[in-house]
Design a protein around this nucleic acid. Sequence first.
RNA 1: GCACCUGUAGCUCAAUGGAUAGAGCUUUUGACUACGGAUCAAAAGGUUGGGGGUUCGACUCCCUCCAGGUGCGCCA
Length: 636
Amino acid sequence: MRFLQEKFKKQICEILKNDYEIAAADLMFSLPAERKFGDLSTYLAFVLAKKTKNKPALLANSMAGKLQGQLQEIEAIQVAGGGFINFYLRRDQFLLYQWQNLARSMPPKTEKVIVEHTSINPNKAAHIGHLRNSCLGDILARCCRFLGYKVEVQNYIDDTGIQIADVVWGLLYFQKKDITAIKKITNLAAYLWELYAEVNQLFAANEDYAAARREVHKKIEDKINPEYEACLYIAEQVLLDHIRTMARLDIKYDLLARESDVIALDFFKAAAAELTDRQVMTRSQDPDKEGCLVIHYEREKIEKIIVRSNGTITYVGKDIAYNLWKFGLLPCDFYYRLFFTYPDSHPIHMTAAEPKPQAPPFGRADKVYNVIDVRQSYLQNLIAQVLDQLGHPEPSRNFIHFSYEMVAMTPDCVREMGLALAPEEENKSYIEVSGRKGRAVKADDLIDQLIAKSEHELESRNSGLSAAEAEPISRAIAVAALRYFMVKFNLNTVIAFDFKEALNFEGDSGPYLQYTMVRLNSILKKTAAADLAVEKNPGLLTPLEVAEKELYWEIILNLSLLETQVEYALANHELSSLAAYAYSLCQKFNHYYHLFPVLAEKNLAIKNLRLTLILLFKDKVEKLLHILGISIPKRM
RNA sequence: GCACCUGUAGCUCAAUGGAUAGAGCUUUUGACUACGGAUCAAAAGGUUGGGGGUUCGACUCCCUCCAGGUGCGCCA
């Protein structure tokens, strides 16, 4: 359909250009709400009427007259609703075209896209907020791959932060463990989750503790042991835990970019030269910021400190340098080492500060998506501003903050977890998650709960399933439920997390989609090989009764929109539209499935058509579910 | 104070400025001698926070008021 729409656009502009002043941008197609209004619709006449101060209905009629019979794929053109021009496709021809292009994928593009997501501080376990980030980032990357882009997934690791000092202090001085004891802790991320919350309460309550923490931070920066060694160990182990957690959800990375390497390789120095030359970064005139180098943030008219008066670089400065590197705009580069290999042999590399052999090429993107929650908007906008000011308008446009709202918890959910609520929080619609307060659902715990529920549901429906058979199925269902839940909301909707909603396997949920596909596959499995072999040509739609024909056509038409839908989702930052699209396709199929049996059908032409629909549906929806990261179990 | 976001059915959420504002959950009722009931069909549920404006057309854009949230540090 995407191809066809482009073709129509060209043809219609060509036919009408002599009589009307139309621009290609004015010519937008949409699917009419009801099929009686045709298969494709345009409100071109309204747009033109506004420009030329004419009556829309008159314009539409005269344009439709000129187009009548000119478009080869179009059966009829009608005007309705006071100026909509509605096109009716030649259905048999369209169906044949869809059938002939079954399993065709989008041609590869030359552009390279970097998607940065996850980027969790390596000092404690991941929670539901991080899951939204990683699920969105992963689906974003899958969309780009589907559309043919070269994609590199990066995960930024802040391995130098004061956050690690918190837990280092907690382990070494509060719990009085030595390095050997620390290395014996299993599931370190989950262990530190508790400790992190505990020590943060101590720091808030007692200035002596806070001072001791600063001492630890200093020692880490000066590479003094055992603090430094503990910091390195924790950062790496917790990172591995995060990678394993996300791998449970089929979320993978290509490169781990470490902040410590950005610093060690002095990326900022190269960036600073440029920033100073262009007078983007200047000495602050503000007496309170005497001796600081700042960038003027135009949107809010404030000065953002980049280099402190003591000469150290802020987070903002480091982030500017890192993002310049992503576009290949710095005269320096990382070194790399192999860090981790997934069971399917996909490698993760990590940046390094010293030369290593056999470095694959990273960076140099044409487009950068940073999946970071909305609370960092000002910083991300500032980076886009700086790119432009440094004379890189193209990268500035292609620097995209993929912003989303936070995950919070309902007050009920907080209580359910046995955590305390302050009186003023009781009546709030949601409570912000907080690692410092230990107030969040840990990612692994949620996944475990989902798997347990899947197992239970699976067992109640399938007796005599061995553990070896059930395990991958339960996992697939849990992953589908979680990923669908994380993507189904609009990006600027705060998710007020609630176990009942997240553990829903019915209706608007991931398992619903899987169930549809499982049943569809079951039909194919039971279809005789001879029947499938006949499937060389779908034939004409004529044998179908009216009711079936309309429903059949509705599904075919919607299936054909896959590529358009993915492009739309990416262009508008609405991955949730893909979840809605998948759900609506499955609803339509389930409806059809109940009314029109395939295997029992005696009329071969009809049976043939129904099988065609099933094979087309399978092809498109499998691709769509793959983008969403939802796999299809053998049975459910 | 400045910047950004949100307000839609009892609840959780959808809806490219477009045709009669849609789903799921909940409630009530119905459908298996099963192409798999994690399904399907039906009922009920709405002054799209209030008020103005722009437009052939507004949940959507503009103004204003009300209610909520987030960001704005020589933290990262």
